[in-house]
Design a binder for these strands. Sequence first.
DNA 1: AAGGTGACAGTTT
DNA 2: TAAACTGCCACCT
Length: 112
Amino acid sequence: MANKSKFFDDVFDVVRLIPKGRITSYGAIAKYLGAARSSRLVGYAMNAAHGEVPSVPAHRVVNRNGLLTGKHHFATESMMQELLEKEGMIIKEDQVINFSTYFWDPMKELSL
DNA sequence: AAGGTGACAGTTT
DNA sequence: TAAACTGCCACCT
């Protein structure tokens, strides 16, 4: 429908730009959008990412601690972890190992 | 129209 | 050091 929701649409766009095998944080996306203080809105946007097309790789978005906070929102809790492992990273206790290594900063990559 | 919500983040105790 | 609280701002009912 004609729901603009610039914020959501913008968030989806950035998330879809995340390269495979990389992950980013809600705050990084929010900051890239100029709403560093709206990190929660990014997570909220992901809430509407379900069923969106093209598919939104929400599994590539984790919190600042590299913790799979939103795994519970997927079809299955283990889906997010499996998807990330499929991308070549390792998850332990719902936390991404070497999170800093896989971290993808839109501000740096897209603004480069 | 107003209030409440939330997949975060930063600061303080 | 770790744990807990507040602030935040757009979306939803």
